[in-house]
């Protein structure tokens, strides 16, 4: 499996709203996080949902987001976070700069 990202990489979720069966939650679209782990390769659910074969399999990652980057005015600790599984074709490199960090 060839993967574009490795644990620790900063990534941004694409800000996109295509129709269909999408497993990238709205609340992380356009947000920046850090790769927590590579989960493996899985058939693409956006294709499987329409009875196609879902090939080629796509790398799937767990991405860690700081709560404060997701929700303005988050009530909680700065370290609180959410981890979400996101397919590679939804991610782009976010560079090294800290954005609105804590």
């Amino acid at each position: 499996m060839t993967t574009r990202f490795a644990p620790g990489d900063r990534v941004r979720v694409r800000w996109a709203h295509p129709p269909g069966h999408i497993r990238t939650p709205y609340y992380v679209r356009g947000k920046t996080g850090v790769i927590e782990r590579v989960c493996g390769s899985f058939r693409n659910p956006e294709e499987l949902a329409y009875a196609r074969d879902g090939q080629p399999a796509r790398p799937l990652y767990r991405v860690h987001f700081d709560q404060r980057t997701l929700w303005p005015g988050y009530q909680g600790r700065a370290k609180d976070g959410v981890e979400v599984e996101i397919f590679e074709h939804w991610l782009e490199p976010a560079g090294a700069a800290k954005e609105g960090g804590t």
């Binding site: 497993r23 990238t24 939650p25 609340y27 989960c39 493996g40 899985f42 659910p45 799937l60 997701l70 929700w71 988050y74 009530q75 909680g76 600790r77 370290k79 609180d80 976070g81 959410v82 981890e83 979400v84 599984e85 996101i86 397919f87």
Partner: peptide, 28 residues
């Protein structure tokens, strides 16, 4: 969005200096 409030409704008060991490099972 507000994990500490939800946990509190289950009677689970997480101290302020702990980290709360939510895991969203979005795929496989």
């Amino acid at each position: 969005r507000e994990p500490r409030a939800v946990l509190g409704e289950f009677g689970t008060e997480i101290p302020d200096d702990w980290e709360v991490r939510v895991h969203d099972s979005t795929a496989d």
